[in-house]
Amino acid sequence: MEGFAHQLVAGIATGGIYASVALALVMIYQATHHVNFAQGEMATFSTYLAWAAVQGGAPWWAALLGTVFASFAVGVAIERVLLRPMRSAPVLAVVCAFIGLMLIFNSITGAIFGYAVRPFPSPFETSAPLLGGLVSGHALGSTAVTLAVLALVWAFFRHTGLGLAMRAAAYNPVSARLVGIRVGWMLALGWGLAAAIGAVAGVMVAPVVFLEPNMMLGVLLYAFAGALLGGIDNPAGAVAGGFLVGVVENLAGAYLVGAELKLTLALAIIVGVLLLRPSGLFGRAVESRV
């Protein structure tokens, strides 16, 4: 029973990471109707930036904060420079661009930092397990951080004018322009925010999976499964889906399929959702009347 509780708590901790990346995916999907395959590699690159800063002697939290801002800037720049000219390009062209972006980030990371697997420090005490051995300090700390980030993002979109403008630009760009919103900048901001959220997720997961250029590949798959499960058009659903996938992954890994087949489970969830309920568990269509 204690093993079960342990797996459950661990699942929630990794679920938080998936939820963050799933949210980043959904934010870009809502604005552009494309899935950013490069989201994971961008987060990996950000995590290396944080690692370099820590190696260079920066305090851990300052490194995280600096990385978040840098990632935001990189996200904005990618939208402005790379995706803006592709605004009316065919779907396949955009998909190719995303795959290209993924490969570029992957090789840049490898070229600069090398392919060796490195440990990544955690600011949360990891030696002594908490709550009677149920949970590690890092799991607890990273869950708290991801929850805080998710709450911040939610509050931003729900309660600020800029958040409302970004949602309006994503839902209906034509009408958004008619009320005076600079839709192009809203898209760029969305990219920046998604990159920043991804950066936090990368830094939080790195102490667990260790730092290497492909570290986010699995995370991205689980996050995508979570986003689909919750509804790719529904941010709250995607977050819930991310947590759910985290828990299911841990429990199934421990009791059902074993660690080797865990990734297959993510793929099974993706295929299953697409087949059975394409709008996701929490996906809702707006009833439109005339």
Partner: peptide, 13 residues
Amino acid sequence: TFAELTVEENLRL
């Protein structure tokens, strides 16, 4: 109108 948003949010926009 922004079909997904509320009346209040539409007016705020």
